[in-house]
Design a protein around this nucleic acid. Structure first.
Lengths: 124, 124
DNA sequence: CAGATATATTGAAGATTGTCAATATATGAA
DNA sequence: TTCATATATTGACAATCTTCAATATATCTG
């Protein structure tokens, strides 16, 4: 960045670079939370689960998903658990089956958080 | 989902679940690309690099980032490489230093892709 | 109750990721 | 050329992630 050289002594200081800037528009915890949320989204199977649930919310059981996706049942359950733990979907047992649905409010919050991050990038 | 039972014979068919739906509003390659892009964003250090570059685009060298972030220089270079390979940033050598900047068009495309995905979730 | 089906959990194996010390490469200065 | 600095790369290690077979749990049926 800018020289730190004071020109007041003959000691050779670092020139031309690395003046520390006071930065961090983002909180440590904000950035951590955003990264965790993006990680949760960042898997093809989980994206497809969300897309399917969005179109058939409340009417999709695990075996539907297993039939629609190229992974086995334990893997489907695994991804469902991650999404449920992350608050993005909800499951409701009805008889033998558990029907999953998108948690639209949570998803809207995720969308807003990502939106805000890009906005912050923009205001440069 | 809906029973497959035809009621025309006495054979016990699967009832109440797992009628395969013709789904997939998303292409295989679309979903793959989106997941890869989200993975690229989904790291606290990379998010912070992007935030810093957005605010000081074209004036940030690696040592600036090293000073601002809680990781060592090889780790900074590692994340810069991922972001550069992903097309999100660009580096330009000026003398001894390499100054990095956000690739705003690429970032806008990423934003649009994410936006589109959430839109598709919405139209349920 | 026993048998069948739906889903979750466990545990193991392989793949990927993140970090850093050591080293290599590139540039500038003397 | 030799030294110093900036950045990249390599290689190793630990941690995390992904998948699935095997198994457990829950529900329904008879």
């Amino acid at each position: 960045m800018v020289a730190q050289n004071t020109d007041q002594d003959s000691v050779k200081l670092r020139v031309g670079c690395c003046t520390p800037f006071i930065d961090e528009p983002l909180t440590e915890s904000e950035v951590t939370h955003l990264a965790e949320t993006l990680s949760l989204l960042a898997h093809p199977i989980r994206l497809r689960i969300l897309a399917i649930l969005a179109r058939h919310a409340g009417h999709v059981c695990v075996c539907d998903l297993e039939a629609a996706l190229p992974v086995k049942q334990p893997t489907v359950s695994h991804h469902l658990r991650l999404l449920r733990d992350g608050g993005l979907i909800e499951g409701e047992r009805r008889g033998q089956w558990i029907y999953y649905a998108i948690h639209r409010e949570a998803l809207a919050r995720v969308r807003a958080m990502i939106h805000t991050f890009f906005d912050q990038l923009g205001e440069a």
